[in-house]
Computed example of a mutant assay.
Amino acid sequence: MPPVVQPARPQLAVSAAIFRGGKVLLARRARSPAKGFYSLPGGRVEFGESLHQALSREVDEETGLKIEIVGLAGWREVLPATAGAGHYLIMSFAARWVAGEPALNDELDDHRWIAPDALADLGDLKLTGGLEEVIQSAHRLIGP
Score class of each variant (00 low, 15 high):
124 D>W: 02
143 G>Y: 13
113 W>M: 05
68 E>S: 15
82 T>H: 13
92 S>F: 05
131 L>R: 11
88 Y>S: 10
25 L>M: 12
1 M>W: 03
82 T>D: 10
132 E>L: 09
51 L>T: 01
117 D>E: 14
41 P>T: 05
35 K>N: 08
134 V>M: 02
110 D>R: 08
121 D>R: 12
91 M>V: 11
115 A>F: 11
4 V>C: 08
18 I>Q: 02
52 H>L: 04
27 A>C: 15
118 A>P: 07
143 G>P: 15
100 G>F: 11
94 A>F: 13
79 L>D: 00
129 G>F: 07
55 L>H: 03
44 R>G: 07
123 G>E: 01
14 V>I: 09
83 A>T: 00
58 E>F: 08
115 A>W: 00
89 L>G: 00
118 A>S: 15
24 V>Q: 00
22 G>P: 03
118 A>Y: 09
50 S>A: 09
121 D>Y: 09
41 P>H: 13
59 V>Y: 15
141 L>Q: 06
130 G>V: 04
12 L>Q: 12
40 L>E: 02
23 K>P: 02
22 G>R: 02
103 A>E: 14
123 G>Q: 09
63 T>W: 07
142 I>L: 06
66 K>F: 02
107 E>P: 02
1 M>Y: 04
3 P>L: 08
71 G>Y: 11
130 G>R: 10
92 S>K: 03
4 V>D: 05
39 S>E: 07
26 L>I: 10
2 P>L: 03
109 D>S: 13
132 E>R: 15
108 L>Y: 14
75 W>R: 09
99 A>D: 13
110 D>A: 15
77 E>V: 09
6 Q>R: 15
81 A>F: 14
1 M>S: 12
60 D>L: 14
71 G>A: 08
65 L>Q: 11
59 V>D: 08
84 G>P: 04
93 F>T: 08
41 P>S: 11
20 R>V: 00
23 K>L: 00
70 V>G: 10
52 H>A: 09
139 H>D: 15
42 G>N: 05
3 P>R: 07
97 W>F: 13
23 K>D: 02
53 Q>W: 01
92 S>Y: 02
82 T>L: 14
133 E>A: 14
85 A>Y: 05
69 I>G: 07
89 L>A: 03
76 R>T: 10
123 G>T: 09
133 E>P: 01
67 I>D: 00
17 A>D: 01
7 P>G: 08
34 A>G: 04
115 A>T: 08
1 M>H: 05
60 D>I: 04
7 P>F: 06
121 D>K: 15
51 L>R: 06
67 I>Y: 07
106 D>W: 07
133 E>K: 14
66 K>D: 03
23 K>C: 10
58 E>V: 08
105 N>W: 06
81 A>V: 15
11 Q>L: 14
41 P>M: 11
32 S>A: 15
81 A>M: 14
55 L>Q: 02
53 Q>L: 04
100 G>M: 09
88 Y>N: 06
101 E>C: 01
89 L>D: 04
7 P>D: 04
